[in-house]
Design a protein around this nucleic acid. Structure first.
Length: 416
RNA sequence: GGAGGGGUGGCCGAGCGGUCAAAGGCAGCAGACUGUAAAUCUGCCGGCGUAUGCCUACGUAGGUUCGAAUCCUACCCCCUCCA
């Protein structure tokens, strides 16, 4: 599918964003003409986005950078229905309040990547039209164009049926809602393209077909490959769950570390997808071998963190990493800080409690185990006694580095 | 509506009156080896805890028993077949 003429598709293609496209040539021409409006939908099930959403976000970012207009559709309405594509069990239904909170968080995550200023990216909530949809008129107008035969062939549905897991009518309607969203966005904002992960293909196509039948307009769909790590794990899921793009949930230091720990085989691919470095630079970096490749990982970590948290935070994270892992300089202030009151420290705080508070262990028992396994350290020295009590003097003015294993570190600070 | 099967720790999955905080696998955490990689090996892996100690847990609620994840009753949920 080489030879795109529009900058937008060329970039996406070269960087590995394209999995399927309904009509590459047609879309290319449209993009070439300029002023393309495209959207990606995010559901509202959490109060932030995570690394798993990053591919879509980067596609929107490139869209904007190459002179087009991104629309972010949050599923305030569809979240009330629940996407069956996840193939797990039905999702829990959220209240309006949850959804409102989540929407704000999602916007917060996105603002770092997209410009929502005048004439820029648009944030739209499909509750605007879905909430007041009237059943009979809707069925008469759109239901006639959608055949169950067709819908049953979609992957998301087929999987459920084959696995003999229940698929409720409510969920079955998800794709209808999403199809209608596309149509509605086309009407309201002239949106012509929907992008998403490869699991969204069926839903996207459904919208394209609907729009063609009702409004006789041609819409386009573009999906990105499902990103897994070289060893097959789903991207962006780690120990504590998702790697969030929100610095309140995942510190810039932890975010930087996430990228730094990329598997060798993924470095090139991730540089293309998750940074904006020029391709020849990336080719040079991914050609590095053995331990040299670590340099590429640091650059990946820096660039990815910069996009998400800004240059300054990325810098601090990089410095903290150098201090912690290479013993170079004092960049410890870049570590996530856990503040403990002076008064508390004056009385003495058990290390196990500190470990738990710092999020390095989930319970006191786990903290204890960590110590028994020899994984807990204070300023680099192994904690031998699980009953150890940390005092104000130990923390000092500089703070005290508390570590769980080689990779998780936190700075304990006294606070008045 | 009828008949049958099933609900066990984050997931899968054994257990079917005591020796069960519950085999095994996956995931996770830590240690060793390395390059903050991968692979491999070792340990840990409900909570509280100085503790051979206590608490919570095998769908829910009761009951039988010295003792129940295991037996009985009711209820809820899921699946299969029949109508």
């Amino acid at each position: 599918m080489a030879g795109f003429r529009s900058e937008f598709l060329r970039v996406l293609d070269e960087r590995g964003f394209i999995f399927q496209c309904t009509d590459p040539a047609g879309l290319d021409a449209l993009a070439q003409a300029g002023g393309l409006v495209a959207y990606v939908g995010f559901d509202c099930t959490a109060d932030a986005l995570h690394v798993g959403n990053l591919v879509s976000i980067m596609m929107l970012r490139w869209l904007q950078r190459t002179g087009h207009r991104p629309i972010v559709l949050v599923g305030g309405g569809t979240t009330k229905v629940g996407d069956p594509s996840g193939k797990d069990e039905s999702r829990r239904l959220l209240s309006d309040e949850d959804i409102a909170v989540n929407k704000r968080g999602i916007l917060r995550s996105l603002q770092k990547f997209l410009d929502f200023g005048e004439g820029g990216a648009l944030l739209v909530d499909n509750a605007a039209w879905l909430d007041e949809l009237r059943y009979i008129p809707f069925l008469r107008r759109y239901g006639r164009h959608l055949t169950v035969n067709r819908m049953l062939t979609f992957e998301s549905v087929r999987q459920r049926l084959e696995r003999e897991q229940p698929l409720t009518f409510l969920e079955f309607n998800y794709m209808v809602m999403q199809a209608y969203d596309f149509l509605e966005l086309a009407r309201r904002y002239g949106c012509r393209l929907q992008m998403g992960g490869s699991d969204q293909w069926g839903n996207i196509v459904c919208g394209i077909e609907l729009a063609h039948k009702t409004d006789r307009i041609t819409l386009y769909g573009l999906t990105s490959p499902l990103i897994t790590t070289a060893s097959g794990a789903k991207m962006g899921k780690t120990a504590q769950g998702a790697v969030w793009l929100d610095d309140n949930k995942v510190s810039p230091f932890a975010y930087w570390q996430f990228w730094r720990n990329t598997e060798d085989a993924d470095v090139g691919r991730f540089l293309r997808l998750f940074t904006e470095l020029p391709l020849d630079e990336i080719r040079r970096l991914e050609a590095l071998e053995g331990a040299e490749l670590n340099e590429a990982k640091k650059i990946l970590a820096y660039e990815a963190t910069r996009l998400c948290h800004g240059a300054e935070a990325a810098e601090r994270a990089a410095r903290a990493a150098r201090a912690v892992f290479e013993g170079a300089g004092d960049g410890l202030e870049g570590l996530p800080v856990v503040a403990v009151s002076r008064a508390r420290l004056a009385q003495g705080v058990p290390v196990v409690e500190l470990l738990t508070r710092a999020g390095l262990a989930q319970s006191l028992s786990e903290a204890r185990r960590l110590i028994r396994n020899g994984g807990a350290r204070l300023d680099g020295r192994k904690v031998e006694d699980e009953r150890l009590v940390v005092t104000l003097a130990m923390v000092g003015a500089e703070g005290l580095k508390l570590s769980a294993g080689k990779k998780r570190h936190v700075l304990i600070r006294a606070e008045s």
